[in-house]
């Protein structure tokens, strides 16, 4: 393993429990340490309430950790100021889950794609437009559609646009939060393919959060399993899936309904009443 690009050290996040709150603080993430090597994909898997999305948002600098330290490329994410913070925003980009709320419904796709460039003062308007066109082509959409509004695109197309927006600033790190959960399986397969192609082309380091173990297995190099805000186990994806070292992981894997089930176990077992046998 090469040197870690993203390093999460003893990070915790508590919600609530302020000075005037009568409720005990809720520990969404407790004492997590993880590191992601350059050009690797770390899959984070867990059920609802496992804290996986909160962790991702802390790395994105959207939610501040209660304690612990997150460094990317040796820089403490939460200590960044001014120019460094601006550089961080160019370097680290998200892809979110919900295609329906990922885009401002009143802006055209072109305006959505060029806004990050505008914010960072990159290029002339013509250059920005060219870059948007180029990226739309890269994610497999017709650039002629760039004047349309988000609602005129299907869920899968919207996630393609979300990927284009995430890479338009030339980031080194892309953090994805359930990017394909709202999609049909056939569309999901295409978007996952696009995601890993782009990741390879641009040499991205990524964290991929999902509740779907099969998707995690497909896209990740290493996987971290989370439950109730804690890290249950972490390791190379094949090791964890084939030889889970922990009861929770074992149960999680066993619970996944798997199409291969029919091929391996059901064929010829004749347990159900309508079996031709």
């Amino acid at each position: 393993m090469s040197e870690p690009l993203i390093d999460i050290k003893n990070v915790s996040k508590e919600f609530g429990g302020g000075l005037f709150s009568r409720l005990a603080p809720f520990k969404a993430v407790s004492d997590i340490s993880l590191s992601v090597a350059r050009n690797q994909t770390m899959g984070i898997v867990g059920e609802s309430g496992s804290g996986k999305s909160t962790l991702l948002r802390m790395v994105l600098r959207l939610i501040q950790p209660t304690s612990g330290e997150i460094t990317i490329n040796g820089q403490n994410v939460w200590a960044l100021k001014g120019g460094q913070l601006k550089a961080f925003r160019r370097q680290v980009q998200p892809v979110f889950q919900n295609p329906a709320s990922s885009f401002n419904p009143r802006h055209s796709i072109q305006s959505i794609l060029t806004a990050p460039l505008e914010v960072h003062g990159i290029g002339t308007p013509a250059e920005r437009r060219d870059r948007a066109v180029e990226l739309l082509e890269r994610v497999g959409l017709d650039p002629a559609m760039r004047h349309r509004l988000p609602h005129q695109f299907s869920g899968g197309q919207k996630q393609r646009i979300a990927i284009a927006r995430a890479v338009i600033l030339g980031p080194t790190v892309v953090l994805a939060d359930e990017p394909t959960s709202a999609l049909d399986v056939s569309v999901q397969a295409q978007v996952l393919k696009l995601f890993s192609d782009i990741k390879d082309d641009l040499g991205l380091t990524t964290i991929f959060v999902s509740h779907n173990l099969a998707v995690i297995r497909q896209v990740s190099d290493r996987v971290a399993v989370m439950q109730h805000g804690r890290l249950v186990e972490e390791g190379p994806v094949d090791d964890i899936f084939d030889n889970p070292g922990n009861d929770y992981t074992r149960n999680l894997i066993a619970a996944v309904p798997d199409p291969a089930f029919a091929r391996r176990n059901r064929a010829g077992t004749a347990v159900h009443p309508v079996s031709p046998a």
Partner: peptide, 25 residues
């Protein structure tokens, strides 16, 4: 079920099976 999964007849079913990621890699 056995037939659909082990010997799918329709192209669409085959596509669906191929598109579904498996937990077994």
């Amino acid at each position: 079920v056995d037939q659909i999964f082990n010997d799918p007849q329709a192209d669409y079913t085959r596509m669906l099976l191929d598109a579904t990621p498996s937990i077994h890699g």
